[in-house]
Simulated assay, not measured.
Amino acid sequence: MPTSNGLRERKKRETRVALSLATIRLCVERGWENVTIEDIAAAANVSVRTFRNYFSNKAEAIAAAHVERTLRIADGIRVSPPGEPLWESIVTAVRANFAPDGSADGSADGSAGEGAGDSAGAEFGRWRDGVALMLAEPALQGEVLKANAAAQDELARAIAERTGAHPTRDVYPKLVAAVIGAGSAVAIEHCLRAEQPTPLDQVLREVFDRLAAGLPVPSYRGEHHDH
């Protein structure tokens, strides 16, 4: 049975995610300069004080979504079947958290997928352009760099646990963590730049299949005993 501390931590994490997603949605829809902290708090149904308890600014809130998604990917890698090949576990965890429904942009309804009508295509185009403008904000880019560093550290720990590598002495976990981040970023950029809506799930699968074919897992089992 969950402890009170566990429930509080879960609630805090849920609030953090809600604030981050509200910030992203509003900034994409309205433009970076047209969104205030008050707007975000209202959209997430919390007070401005609550927002400031979690984040200092909009950029920090947006970057938090990346860290949260990476934590879920790392958790997915950890709980994957023990006998499953590492890269299959990675592909499953990444796809589950970037494009759970096989949609082009990870949206909940998947309406912007390949073959959608003119209205859906136009909606996807507006969302895509809004995301691109948001990501171009200098204030956000610095926070994203910090988020990437934290995300890669967590992924590296998960990879070390799965492969038996040492989390700091061996380079493989860090390499795979960096590749997961780079591969995901390439897939997203490809979809954002595509002339026609392109299913993110499809691109992610192609990216990671190609990576898996060129990055076999070294055998670390038995080499280290003091993880």
Rank of each mutant, 00 (worst) to 15 (best):
K58I: 03
K58S: 02
E137N: 11
L135I: 04
F98S: 04
G115H: 14
G83Y: 12
L71Y: 09
A99T: 04
A64E: 04
W127N: 08
G125Y: 05
N97S: 08
A136S: 15
P138C: 04
V94F: 10
V94E: 14
A112S: 05
A93R: 13
W87C: 02
E123S: 10
S56D: 07
G130D: 07
D101W: 04
G110A: 10
A93F: 11
D129L: 02
A104I: 13
A104D: 00
I62R: 11
A104E: 00
D129P: 01
I73A: 01
G117N: 09
D118P: 06
E84Y: 02
S89P: 05
L135G: 02
E137P: 04
A104L: 11
Y54D: 09
G102W: 14
A61N: 06
A120V: 13
G106L: 00
A108G: 05
R95H: 06
D109G: 02
G106E: 15
E114W: 06
D109Y: 11
G76K: 04
A139E: 15
E68Y: 04
S111A: 12
D118K: 12
A108W: 09
I73D: 01
V131W: 04
T70E: 13
I62M: 14
A65Y: 07
W127R: 15
P85H: 08
D105W: 01
I90S: 06
N57I: 12
E123T: 12
M134N: 00
R69Y: 09
I90H: 08
S89L: 00
E114S: 13
H66T: 02
E114N: 06
E84C: 03
V94R: 15
G117C: 03
G117W: 01
E88R: 10
A139I: 07
R69Q: 13
A96D: 10
N53R: 11
T70S: 15
M134G: 00
E123C: 07
A63P: 08
F98P: 05
V131I: 11
E137C: 08
S111K: 09
A64Q: 05
A59I: 15
A116V: 13
P138K: 07
G121M: 13
A96N: 08
I90F: 06
R72S: 01
K58P: 01
E68C: 01
D101Q: 04
G110R: 07
G121T: 14
P82H: 04
E123G: 03
G110I: 14
A139V: 07
R128C: 09
H66E: 09
P85Q: 05
R69T: 14
Y54N: 12
D109L: 13
S111C: 04
L71N: 14
E114M: 10
W127F: 09
F98K: 13
R95V: 06
R126V: 02
P100N: 07
Y54G: 09
E123V: 12
D109F: 13
R95W: 03
N53P: 00
S119D: 14
G113S: 14
Y54Q: 12
H66V: 00
F98W: 14
S107C: 07
S119H: 12
A61D: 05
S89T: 03
S80F: 03
P82K: 06
V91G: 07
I77Y: 15
E68M: 03
D75K: 06
D101G: 10
S107F: 11
T70M: 14
L71C: 09
A112E: 01
R78I: 04
